[in-house]
């Protein structure tokens, strides 16, 4: 690792100030960033740890009934504190990586990183959540912009994520056993305005909404309803773990499992 200054502000305002310095970077749980620093894939002048900012940690209920998760909340905390109000989200968080990763890794870090096989992007897009930063609110539909790319501006911090609570929801993950990331994961949410289906791990462009399945499930919320629809293999990831056709099939199978579990 190259040398850098380490800062641990106590408020969002102090963090924003520290991040305005040239080449300063935010540090969440470090579960992705620290390995990349070791590989010299990033060379920040300063790291600004967000984990000491009390207003960015924890789970609460907003006045509109939405579940608010602080941007620096570790996965393990979401797994327990969201369990009563949004069990599908809590179950997803409780199955990310392993216990040690869940004690450090944060929702903000996962979303900012936007790994194409990460779990949280599916929950955020599938729930139609809102990403609240230090400057604005971003709808999930406008946040994810492809592999490792998001709508965040340099120095912008995810302060909170607000999840409207669906009528029914579930996440079905086909786990890559070595990395424990999603080989394909599907988050299904049934809301008053129809069904949302978000797929992670499968597409070359990262998380996406499967609109054909959404239409079929909005008309009939059952696993059989999507028997006749499928995603094309074109544009799906092909690697040593699976071909594009295999992943395209997994998208449908995981969607059906999520519908059954919801």
């Amino acid at each position: 690792m190259y040398a850098f200054d380490f800062e641990k502000p106590k408020t969002v305002a102090e963090a924003v100030e520290a991040l305005s310095r040239e080449d300063a970077m935010a540090l969440g749980g470090g579960q992705t960033l620290i390995p990349s620093l070791k590989q010299h894939l990033a060379a920040p002048s300063a790291l600004v740890s967000l984990t000491g900012i009390a207003e960015m940690r924890g789970v609460c209920t907003g006045t509109d009934g939405a579940l608010c998760v602080g941007g620096a909340t570790p996965h393990a905390v979401v797994a327990t504190e969201a369990a009563a109000k949004y069990p599908a989200l809590a179950a997803l968080a409780g199955n990310i990586g392993d216990p040690a990763v869940r004690n450090r890794g944060t929702i903000g870090g996962s979303l900012a990183n936007n790994d194409p096989a990460a779990d949280y992007p599916a929950a955020v897009l599938g729930s139609g959540a809102t990403i609240v930063t230090n400057t604005r609110s971003i709808a999930a539909d406008d946040f994810f912009e492809g592999l490792f790319t998001t709508a965040l501006e340099p120095g912008e911090i995810i302060v909170e994520v607000r999840f409207p609570i669906p009528q029914r929801a579930a996440y079905a993950k086909f786990q890559q056993p070595a990395s424990r990331f999603a080989l394909t994961g599907v988050f299904v949410a049934k809301t008053a305005n129809g069904v949302r289906v978000a797929v992670t791990g499968a597409s070359e462009n990262g998380v996406f909404r499967w609109s054909e399945a959404e239409a079929a499930l909005s008309a009939d919320f059952s696993a059989e309803a999507i028997e006749g629809v499928s995603v094309p293999a074109e544009g799906m990831v092909g690697d040593l773990h699976g071909t594009p056709a295999y992943r395209a099939n997994l998208v449908k199978v995981m969607t059906q499992r999520a519908v059954r579990a919801a």
Partner: peptide, 18 residues
Amino acid sequence: VVHVDGQPVKSCTVFASD
């Protein structure tokens, strides 16, 4: 793995200052 405030973490992926 060590415990930080009772919780297991991977000490190779945490900064001492944090």
